[in-house]
Amino acid sequence: MVDALQFLVSGLVIGSIYGLAGIGFTGIYNVTGVVNFAQGDKAMIGAMLAISLSQMGLPPIVAILLAVGLTGAVAVVIECFTVRPVGNDVWRGIIVTIGVGIVLRGIAVVVWGTEARGLPAFSGEEPIHFLGATVSPQSLWVMGITAVLAIGLALFFQLTFIGKAFRACAVNPFASRIVGIEIRTMSPIAFAISGVLGAIAGIIIAPITLMQYDTGLLIGLKGFVACIIGGFGNPMGALLGGLILGIAETFSAGYLSSGYKNAIAFVLLLGFLIFRPEGLFREIDSKLVKHER
């Protein structure tokens, strides 16, 4: 029983990490319809920048804010020079963001080398006990910030003008133009937001997962799977999808063969794509799934 509880708690922590990676996708997807395959790498870049800046002697909070801002700026540059020329061509959008991911990882190796780096935990390493299960304090940070960001982003989409404009672009680009919303200006904003979200994700998970140049790749992919499970474009869906994925992984690692744990994510991915491509929480997106014969 204690074991199951520990699996559940661990699953929630990992799930939050995946969910956090996942919500970074939603902003961009909502506006531009681009699935950014370099999203995980932005998290890596954000974390690496924060580590480097704090090693240069900046106070941690300044280093973190600066890293988050810089990553947002990098995201805007990516939007301007790679995503915009491609336009709304799905096919080229996928490949170009894959290319951006390769470049970011390459730059990371050149700048930071291939060795893993870590950030000190925000509030110590003393584990917290809960009915026999234990969590590290950093996990609580991850879960807390993930929840705050997911809810915050959902509220942002629900309540603010700009958030509504994001959703409007996704629902009906023509109508958006008619009311004066320019996708040209929304798209960099979306990339900046996702860059910032990615950087925050990378920074708060770095003390747990540790960061090296290719850490973002797998975390980004898992975040993507979380989005598929929860329904693309919906931050709360991404969070819930991440939690489902995380719990599925820890339970399968705990009770089944642990080696196949990584396959679980992709089996879930294929399963959802094929049997419920709209995810758990979203209306079907006609652009992505075949309707007509």
Binding site: S10, T250, S257, K261
Partner: peptide
């Protein structure tokens, strides 16, 4: 005997089984 993934972010499930 437990196996974990080289890039996994968390190994508590395996270690929980060992702890048991």
């Amino acid at each position: 005997q437990q196996t974990y993934g080289n890039n996994d972010p968390d190994m508590t499930p395996q270690l929980t089984n060992i702890r048991a």
